[in-house]
Design a protein around this nucleic acid. Structure first.
Length: 160
DNA sequence: GCCAACGTTGGC
DNA sequence: GCCAACGTTGGC
């Protein structure tokens, strides 16, 4: 078996609900990325994400919207416990314990960028022209990022 | 299976 | 606040 290629992702979060600071100040700088209720995003979480994958952490509906830093997936997919919790906003009575509909991963903050990379700057960078985030109408809250895209964004974030 | 109505996302 | 785009729901 050949080793699968390294993977990278972009995770969106509205800072008013869960911000980079919230992640950074979480125990072990780690949180359960739960509450995802979109099948396409679920498929990426359940079928594609691996421990060790790199993540760009993006603030949506922020001023300006921007990639704030990097994170890492530290636990691969497991059934999303909030789907089984009647007290949770994310409770889904149709998700069965023995056949879960929804999955979560654990995410750990790695590095806050010296220079957060705003959406407008991503749009002007030729090497990022094909980024999923920049495609019209794309609302996926977790999306694949190529290795080249990850490296470009990380360099912009480190160096401004 | 079709499609209108509605809700959500998210940039501006 | 506005609106484009997309997803979901539910009647038929």
């Amino acid at each position: 078996m050949t080793r699968p290629p390294p993977r990278a992702w972009l995770f969106k979060s509205e800072p008013s609900s869960f911000s980079w600071h919230d992640l950074w100040t979480s125990p072990k700088r780690t949180t359960s990325w739960d509450g995802i209720r979109n099948h396409q995003a679920r498929n990426l979480i359940r079928d594609e994400m691996r421990a060790g994958d790199r993540v760009l952490f993006y603030h949506s509906s922020a001023t300006p919207p921007a990639v704030i830093g990097t994170a890492e997936i530290v636990r691969a997919a497991y059934p999303d416990p909030t789907a089984f919790d009647p007290d949770s906003d994310y409770f889904d009575p149709k998700s069965a314990q023995d056949e879960p509909t929804w999955y979560a991963v654990d995410l750990r903050a790695k590095k806050r960028f010296a220079h957060p990379v705003p959406l407008g700057e991503l749009r002007t960078h030729a090497g990022l022209a094909d980024m999923a985030l920049l495609r019209k109408g794309n609302r996926l809250s977790v999306q694949p990022v190529t290795d080249a895209e990850f490296r470009i964004v990380e360099r912009l974030g480190d160096q401004g």
